[in-house]
Each structure stands twice: as C-alpha cells, then as structure tokens.
C-alpha cells in the first residue's frame, strides 16, 4: 500500500456524475478517508448524500462537528458549513463567511486537510464553474500533497480544473477514468 492517508476531492457544477463514478470505482474497505468538498444547492439539506450513496461502495456521510475520521468513509461537506480537517484526527465544521461565494468552500477543506496530511494527501479538482479550489490545491501542493486536476478538455465545465492548473503545477492531469484508476491503485 502507498504512503497516502487521505483523498480530498473538490468539485462544483458538473461534478456530480464524476464523483458518483469515483465512489463507485473505489473498493469496499478503501484504506483512506475521502473528503468531498462539493458545491451544493444552498439550504437544501437533504438528498445529496443519499444520491451520492446510491452507487458508492463506501459509506458516504455528512459528518457531525468533531467526528472522528475513519478510513473507508467518504465525508461530504454538509450544506451551509465549511468542513475542516482538525488536529486529533477529527473533522470540524464552521459557519464562517462564504469564501468565493461558497460555503462549503473547497479552498478551506484543501487548506486544512493539507495542513494535517501534508505529503500523505492526494488532492483532486474536477469540473466546476468557478475558481474555488485553486488556492487550496496550490497550498496543498506547497505542503507536498499529490495533486491531480481533471483534464479540462473533458470536464463538463472547465473553469475549476483550469484555475487549479494555473495556480499550481499539478502532478497529474487526468481523465475521470484515469483518476478512478489512480485512486484505486494507491490502495493496493
């Protein structure tokens, strides 16, 4: 097994089918936690986690504040909260102001996760219509994380992966199928 300890995925418009695909390709008992910082309809609390769970091989949950992080679980940033990886292997939530018009903010999840996991983190930015995530993945890269952007030519909306690629030199630019393969491969 690789040295990684966490996977963080950021996405917005057009990312839903991609994240479903990733979650359905990961094996049961995936050895890392997967953090999902996805923009979502504001103030619609229900439905999203259920929709993501349908085809996922690993449980998808919206964590409570200070929930202990476990491998093999996908943690979806809850509606109207920022999701942080906190010291002591826990998740912290926050209602601080929106960042780039977003709460949850992809930047903040990437920033806090890479602060904890450093070079043991894999960060992935997929389709989206704004530049949230670019700053976060840049900082993740500075801390040694392995960074991946979805190939913008393939993304439904390429603004987000484009911004990530512009902000920092990605370790890999991959199609969604290749991203799935990669995330599976690091588990073996």
């Amino acid at each position: 097994m690789s040295n990684y300890k966490a996977v963080v995925i950021g996405g917005s418009a057009g990312s839903f089918p991609l994240v479903v695909k990733i979650l359905s390709s990961l094996p049961k008992n995936y050895p890392f936690p997967v953090f999902l910082a996805l923009h979502r309809l504001k103030h619609i609390r229900n439905g999203f986690v259920e929709a993501l769970s349908l085809k996922s091989n690993i449980p998808v949950i919206e964590p409570h504040d200070k929930e202990v992080i476990k491998p093999g679980i996908a943690y979806l940033a809850p509606s109207n909260y920022h999701m942080y990886v906190e010291l002591g292997n826990t998740i912290a939530l926050s209602t601080e102001d929106m960042v780039k018009y977003s709460r949850p903010s992809i930047d903040l999840t990437f920033d806090t996760a890479s602060y904890i996991y450093k070079d043991k983190m894999v960060g992935v930015i997929v389709s989206g219509a704004n530049t949230d995530g670019a700053e976060g993945i840049k900082r993740s890269k500075e801390r040694g994380a392995f960074t991946i952007a979805q190939n913008p030519d393939e993304a439904t909306i390429k603004t987000m992966p484009d911004a990530a690629i512009k902000a920092a030199e990605m370790d890999k630019i991959l199609s969604i199928d290749e991203i799935c393969k990669f995330l599976v491969s690091i588990a073996n």
Binding site: L87, S94, E96
Partner: peptide
C-alpha cells in the same frame, strides 16, 4: 477553541 477556525480568524 477549535484550531482550524481560530487560525482562520
């Protein structure tokens, strides 16, 4: 105080 949010503040 929780560290991540305190740090951001």
């Amino acid at each position: 105080y929780a560290l991540s949010s305190f740090k951001r503040r």
